[in-house]
Computed example of a mutant assay.
Amino acid sequence: MDPDLEVNGRQLARFCRALDESLTSLGEARRALEHVRADQLGTAALDEACDGFQKRWKYGAEQLDDRITSVRDGVQATRAGFAEVERAIETAFRAVAVRHG
């Protein structure tokens, strides 16, 4: 075990907020692209290419959304777990201090 290991709950919380912001931005980009119609862009070939991109982008963005959500959930669970361990250690030290004055 690395004696230099340190878990900072505030940093984990900031990381979760950054992940939430990325999910928001990704959702906004996905919604903006949904409003662009391929037939508004130009030639039939360009329209077809844009339609293909839209389909791939939607799938990829949904997959990325799922992965970011999983990472965020894992970070939140890790943060909660470390907080619980810290509380248990603090409780144990307080109990020892009370017993030994």
Rank of each mutant, 00 (worst) to 15 (best):
Y59Q: 15
A44Y: 06
G52I: 00
L33Y: 08
D66T: 13
D51M: 05
Q76E: 12
G42L: 03
R67E: 09
T69K: 06
A44C: 03
R67L: 08
V36T: 12
Q63E: 12
Y59W: 13
A77G: 07
E62W: 09
S70N: 14
A45E: 15
V36K: 04
D73N: 14
A77K: 14
Q63R: 15
V71P: 01
R67G: 01
F53K: 02
R56K: 15
E48G: 11
H35T: 10
V75A: 03
R37W: 05
G52T: 10
R72D: 00
V75N: 00
D51G: 12
H35E: 15
I68E: 01
V36A: 07
V71H: 02
G60W: 08
A49D: 15
Y59I: 15
L46D: 09
L64Q: 06
H35V: 10
Q63G: 07
D65Q: 10
C50W: 09
C50L: 14
E48A: 15
L41I: 06
E34L: 02
E34N: 09
F53L: 12
L41F: 06
Q54F: 05
E62T: 07
Q63T: 14
D66M: 11
L33Q: 07
A38L: 03
E48N: 13
T69W: 09
Q54A: 13
D51N: 10
H35A: 13
G52Y: 06
A49N: 13
V75D: 00
W57A: 14
K55A: 15
V75L: 01
E62R: 10
R79I: 04
L46W: 05
T78P: 00
D39V: 05
G52P: 02
E62C: 06
A44R: 09
D47N: 14
D39S: 13
G52K: 12
R56Y: 11
F53V: 05
